[in-house]
Design a protein around this nucleic acid. Structure first.
Lengths: 149, 149
DNA sequence: CTTGACCTTCCAACGATGGGAACGTCTATC
DNA sequence: GATAGACGTTCCCATCGTTGGAAGGTCAAG
């Protein structure tokens, strides 16, 4: 099957399949005479493995290790588990950081009247040290950024 | 003061100060005759605002809005609060996604013996549909990726 | 044989940050 | 005043995973 079929069968976009091949996460696909990549059911199987691992937040480098273990019939499940638990830890770290942000923001938002008045604990917090007004000559700021987000 | 001093006073690296100027988040600094950027205490104050907002996870586009509100003495705190709560929501979405990953992974890891045996529910899950072995001729995979992560 | 849907490669962008090269400037010491 | 070294400047590149597009070749159906 060609890359488009493999893509829809695996849930990995054709773009990403080429990318994964390029960085060496998956082996180079064989080619037809005209240069089209060809995929087998086993390839799709592997791509779905990759997809699922990405959905679970594994970075590509770890997926590479997982793939190697997957292919290794004499693997030790301990090795797999080690990768997984390390990943869990890094997810937890990320979550902790985000929770910290939410906690702070929620406290600030709760204390913000959220009406027509300008006073706002959120801005006050961002300002932090509450320095007494401005010194020096402030420059004017144009509206909007120069690049779009 | 020059960019290095402003950087250490604000906690924003010189690199990032130049970047923020380039994308228009902060106004262009005035220059000395020799081309060095000059910063006032008010500029440092603004940079600290940006820094704190980044620490709270606000994307640059939202910091731009927050800065405009900060400068606007006739702002409505409701507008500030709206940005903050929207950001809280997006953080929550991210956290939910990560928690989902952790939950799944933790369940899989719990069920993984983590010893010398090859059987592993983690790999089984990644494989998902548990198709009966491979069809076709699998290609061999070289060890390691072509790019480093 | 044309049309349209696919494939190919290459290049760029995203968001925020860091690293470094090549080159100019400031300051302290000799 | 010369020189060293700590700073500044601009410009380009890399990250990480993914998407988009351009320019061109291929395939299958009408």
């Amino acid at each position: 099957m060609n890359i488009g079929e493999a893509a829809s069968a695996s849930g990995v976009s054709a773009k990403m399949i080429r990318y994964y091949e390029q960085i060496g996460l998956i082996p180079p696909a064989s080619r037809t005479d005209s240069g089209y990549r060809e995929y087998t059911d086993a390839d799709v199987h592997m791509l779905r493995f990759v997809r699922r691992a990405r959905d679970l937040g594994f970075p590509v480098a770890e997926i590479d290790e997982l793939l190697n273990l997957w292919r290794d019939r004499s693997r030790r499940s301990a090795d797999v588990k080690k990768i997984a638990t390390a990943h869990i830890d890094s997810l937890r770290d990320k979550i902790d950081g985000l929770n910290q942000m939410v906690a702070t923001l929620q406290d600030l938002a709760r204390r913000c009247s959220g009406d027509g008045r300008p006073d706002c604990p959120i801005l006050a917090d961002l300002e932090e040290a509450t320095e007494p007004a401005t010194t020096g000559s402030p420059r004017r700021q144009q509206r909007g950024l120069k690049t779009k987000y």
